[in-house]
Structures are given as C-alpha cells and as structure tokens.
Design a protein around this nucleic acid. Structure first.
Lengths: 125, 125
DNA sequence: ATCTTTTGTTAGTATAAACTAACTTTTATT
DNA sequence: AATAAAAGTTAGTTTATACTAACAAAAGAT
C-alpha cells in the first residue's frame, strides 16, 4: 500500500459506508468493494499502521483526521467528475467508473482548473 | 502485462520515438522511459507475443496495425488532454503528467464527450 | 449447552511490473 | 586480432495487491 491508489479507494469506501450504515466493519468494506475479507483485513491493518483509520475493539472502523481528509478529497473528486461527465452526456455507469479511476490519478491543480473552468453545469448535490 | 496500462505506455512511447528517430530499438525505449533495458526487453517480448509490435533481426521495433491503433488512440488522448489542461491554466509539467495518467484510465465515451463539449480551446497541433 | 454462522486474522500463493546481476552477442577501437 | 563498449537476454528478486485455505473468536439459534 505504498501506492496511494488502493488506500484512497478504501478510505473513500469507508467514508461512503459511514454515511449509510450506523457502524462500518471490515466485512462491510469487503462486501461493498467485492473483495475477500482477508484482503480487507490486511488493508485495514495497513491503514491503521499509517494512521488513516482507528478500529475499536468491537471492530468498528473510524477515519482519523488524516484519513478523513483523503477520503473527503477523493469523494469530492468522485462526485464532481461523475456529475460533470453525466452532464456531458456520458452514460451514468461509465461516468461512475471513469470517475472512480480518474479521481486517483488527477492532480490537485488539474482538478481545481477543471472545476473552475467547467463549473457551470447542473450538480445533483 | 495483463493490465493494459503498461503496454499502452510502451506502445505510445514507441510511436513517439518513431517520429523522432530513424529506427526504434529497445534501448531507446528504456532511455525514454527511464527503465532498465532488462525491463524493456521483457516488455517487448510480451508486446511481440501479443502481436502489438514486430522486431527485426537487427532489433528494430515497428508497431503492427493493432499496436499502432492503440498507440494512436493513447497519443491522441495525450495531446488533447495535455493541451486542454494547459489551456485551463494548469502548469505544463503537471498537465503532461496528468495527461499521461488519465489517458490510460478514461473510457472512449468520456473522452469523446469531453472533446465534444470543451473543444473550443487553442490547440497547438 | 452445543452447534452454526459470522467476522476477523494469519500464512502462504499469484500476478504484474519494475528491479539487479550475470551472461551473450554484436559493434567499435585500438 | 584483442579488448572495450553497447545492446539484448535470462534468471531470480522486490513490491503492491489481490487471492485461497485454515484457523480463532464471537454471536445466534436450536
């Protein structure tokens, strides 16, 4: 998990689940992402070690300040990019998939520039 | 090289080098990408096996029809995305880096939609 | 209380894609 | 011709990230 891509995705998923569920457990993340619980268990260990999440003795996962910041950033990109692509006429499914990939590789600068310059479309948030 | 990302990058590099050099060899690709020649050697073997390139007995690399198609597509994305980001005020270095990453993960549909909708900027080609 | 299911962990495996090290082969220089 | 340099190959290593299999512990159902 040196590459941030996978970590970012886990953090974003934890954020999204925390809005839908009363508590977020490892198994919930696995279900959401379609991964095996063993994979998620290892990933959560790394996120814990890197100070991105805290896990209670009951197994409830919470984002730390640092983890939350990353999750928020990625989630904002996700929402913006998918809404924007949809507003351009891209099929919703494809727009969501693309947003999921672009959100991890775009720079702060480019994202800000796009937001600034193509901002005038219907946001669904 | 099941993931297309690396293969696409090699093919694009071969295309670019073939416009600059009389012939393209493995070592030229390695130099351009900053990879070791052993890595490129293995990658070229895979591209050969997948019918994306042909290598002459002298070691000269040529794109096949299939390889050329991929290279052209990626290169077009690269040029469009970088020009577009630069036109939005993104620093050139960052725009190029972002284009290099986004070009491999964006769908045909989204790329077409962006091109269609934000087409009215100064292209430097 | 016992058995089953759910959840989490650990150990070891697989794959992609880079790497180093060592070797071969060809080309150039003396 | 002999040595040196450049280019290519091969074998084995590393890292990230998923996987399976086997186990442990907790929660629920009978």
């Amino acid at each position: 998990m040196k590459n941030t891509e996978s970590a970012e995705n886990y953090l974003e998923t934890i954020l999204i689940l925390s809005q839908k569920l009363p508590v977020v457990r490892s198994i919930d993340v696995a279900t959401e992402l379609g991964f095996k619980k063993s994979s998620v268990s290892v990933a959560m260990k790394h996120l814990r070690e890197n100070g991105h999440i805290v896990v209670s003795s009951a197994g409830y996962i919470t984002l730390t300040e640092a983890g939350r910041e990353i999750a928020d950033m990625i989630y904002e990109r996700h929402n913006f990019l998918s809404s924007w692509l949809i507003s351009l006429g891209v099929d919703e499914k494809i727009a969501l998939e693309d947003a999921c990939r672009i959100e991890h590789v775009i720079s702060k600068e480019s994202f800000a520039a796009i937001k600034r310059n193509v901002g005038g479309f219907q946001t669904n948030s």
